[in-house]
Amino acid sequence: MSEPIALKLTAKDFKSDQEVRWCPGCGDYAILAAVQQFMPELNIPRENTVFISGIGCSSRFPYYMNTYGMHSIHGRAPAIATGLSVSRPDLSVWVVTGDGDALSIGGNHLIHALRRNVNLKILLFNNRIYGLTKGQYSPTSEVGKITKSTPVGSADAPFNPLSLALGAEATFVARTIDSDRKHLQSVLRAAAQHEGSAFVEIYQNCNIFNDGAFDQLKEPATRDDFLIRLEHGQPITFGKDGQFCVVHPPGGFGLEVRETAATPAEEIVVHDATVTDPAYAFALSRLPGLDLRNTPIGVFRSVGRPSYDRVVQEQVATARATVTETPERQLAALLGSGDTWTIL
């Protein structure tokens, strides 16, 4: 196979002619800019790239990408994208969704796309609020959240999106933050290279209805002590001076944070995203507390499993390999199969 021709695309090539209409200051702008700047790196022709979204603020995303795109209906983007991806394995199909779209009305489609390992890159913009409907609590809002629909505080426990994805045995699971362009693009890069479903949670600030939801992860004063930057093959330590580390205490099921100084180096967990058992990545996903302390970002899990698209297309290809007739003759033979009789 010859080397692919360099397309020499730029971020500008991925900007559509539509005026971007998110609220000024919305985290979605940063994500859009990061994605548009990243796409040329993939060297995939624009016509072979498709963005499919559901409903919500984030789901306006496809209008602003100068690729093929569909702004569909609430929660159903993974289902629609599955049909497209399975029938057109030559395309690079991206799903853009939000916490309400993916985890509430569309929860069923999300988990089934992930368990099937459909070749979709799913970007979940998590702002922990319903923005487009003007400020109701979402399935990732914290318990007790006071919103228009919950004046004395919400009563339901939130989903942890990564735990949910890992429960569905997603083969690629990662988290990043809208404001950290470099990290966001590194995660997109890893997601794009993955065969099968890549699930990326992006913490995104809604400055109108839930401003500052992720400030502890962004403020210079707190971020280094709160964020765990996962790197494959590296011991998991974090904090301004690397003063914290992650260990797997004997006898326990999960992972815990300890003081690095008081922990023997060999007890510090070395991050391995390729561990087959999702329990490890699940334990990582459980580390953050309500105050966002100990929030891992980066690639939690990246394991190989044939994509649904590939298995389905291989079945079709195997069946077609036996065909020697024209489609018309094949059809005539099919119609006349079984017990037939002839009237002269």
């Binding site: 499919i52 569909m70 569909s72 159903r76 289902a79 629609i80 994208a81 599955t82 049909g83 497209l84 991806s85 399975v86 029938s87 057109r88 395309l91 069923n108 489609h109 089934h112 389905v312 079945q315 079709v316 195997t318 069946a319 077609r320 036996t322 065909v323 489609p327 094949q330 059809l331 099919l334």
Partner: peptide, 29 residues
Amino acid sequence: HKRFGVVTMQAEDEIAAVGAALGASYGGS
């Protein structure tokens, strides 16, 4: 009838079934 290029998908629910069909139509099926 895969040898005719027919792809069948048993979806997770009725909504996904029609969604996937529409997605496939969008792609030229």
